[in-house]
């Protein structure tokens, strides 16, 4: 027989006396974010020290890869949000 997946009632739930973990603390999440900002800044700062061999001029602009990655992802998410307006339907769309 193939695997049987559990019904929602069968899944163990959070115990009332569960102790919060390290990451449950909002401050620690903030710390992770600050670390990420610091690494990003560092990667931008070392950029001029890296000798790039590629044939395309744009690649030699300061911080090209970082800026392109950031702008690309923001565009991706905002465009996908717009796409939702066009293609999103209710979950049972094909069953009706």
């Amino acid at each position: 027989m193939t695997d049987r997946t559990p019904e929602p009632a069968e899944i163990p739930r959070k115990a009332p006396d569960e102790r919060p973990t390290w990451i449950d603390d909002r401050k620690n999440v903030d710390r992770i974010c600050y670390a990420l900002y610091a690494v990003s800044a560092a990667l931008l700062l070392v950029d001029p020290l890296i000798h790039k061999h590629g044939p395309f001029a744009i690649e030699h602009w300061w911080g090209f890869y970082g800026i392109y990655g950031f702008v690309g992802c923001v565009f991706l998410v905002l465009a996908a949000k717009e796409l939702r307006k066009l293609v999103m339907r209710s979950e049972d769309y094909y069953d009706r």
Binding site: C33, L36, S40, L43, I50, Y65, G66, I67, G69, C73
Partner: peptide, 15 residues
């Protein structure tokens, strides 16, 4: 370094 720049800034965008 260039790959890390691309990825870390993607993570930054997500954050």
């Amino acid at each position: 370094i260039t790959q890390l720049q691309l990825l870390i800034f993607s993570a930054l965008a997500f954050t």
